[in-house]
Design a protein around this nucleic acid. Structure first.
Lengths: 153, 153
DNA sequence: CCGATATCAGGGGGACTGAAATTG
DNA sequence: CCAATTTCAGTCACCCTGATATCG
């Protein structure tokens, strides 16, 4: 224990550190749970979006996942190559190329959700329902606070 | 809104989804805050570990950050190339190569902490101190629950 | 002409597995 | 011999910036 430069608040007592650890633990558990299904967490997140919001273009998926269209394009190409989604030109807007789940994609998503739900249940087991609600609402307020100001530098 | 395969709980009401969003927002804000300091978030995390726990070998740093020694080795090589850390063979254990902060590393870490603290303050502004404590403790319990069982498959 | 979209080109940090050499 | 450490080699999904072409 040296801590010459950290502020007076120990690492273990920082909320940001707890968020980082929780995300890493969740991400690792999800990675492991989805590994033998041959799908990554970002890819699974796209399948969830398509099931949840319906057909969506690459640009829409990028906005939903907070990444660039170029990054999303690569994820989408993987999913398309694996036959999990298909894309047909939009009938009215020639440039739009909305993606939709294929039957194979729906089947794989269903299998993913079983694994994901098991991980979530394990993660939330120590919390009461009230605590879960409070944590969720508090984190959502944090996200909103970070997104309101685009970092004043 | 289609939601053919998701369970009955909407996406927005899932704690796991809130954790993911909070981490992504925090990570994006930190990326932006540290960008002009020419250091990445994983690299900064290593500097924090060295300041917080003292000198540490590559294997120790890998364990602290929950990644493989190979991955940590690459991060450490970046930091060493930038003159932020230095490594000297351990006097008693010839194979150990503990890393320590250089003066340049300490200065950069101090600059990083200013930016990071500003981000954290912005993120936690909507929460009361009690809420911060509850969120932190709840998340820590979640991490513990995930780490206890190594995924029963 | 402009805005939004899709996509190609290029690059980089981070993460992994596999394997080899070293040391206690 | 074994366990831990370090590190080379190779691979990959992801994420970015820049640039281009297309459509409304």
């Amino acid at each position: 224990m040296v801590r010459k430069l950290m502020s007076d608040v120990p690492l273990e007592e920082r909320v940001g550190y707890a968020i980082k650890r929780a995300f890493q633990a969740q991400r690792a558990a999800l990675d492991h749970a989805l590994r033998d299904l041959n799908i990554t967490v970002p890819q699974w997140a796209v399948l969830v979006c398509l099931d949840y919001y319906g057909d969506a273009s690459n640009a829409e998926l990028a906005r939903l996942n907070a990444c660039t269209p170029q990054t999303m394009n690569e994820i989408v190409r993987h999913l398309e190559a694996d036959g999990l989604i298909e894309r047909q030109p939009h009938p009215d807007h020639g440039i739009l190329l909305p993606a939709r789940l294929t039957p194979a994609g729906e089947n794989l998503l269903a299998a993913c959700m079983e694994r994901v739900s098991a991980v979530e249940a394990r993660m939330l087991a120590p919390l009461t329902v009230e605590e879960q609600k409070l944590v969720r609402d508090a984190l959502n307020r944090c996200v909103q606070a970070l997104q309101e100001e685009p970092a004043p530098v």
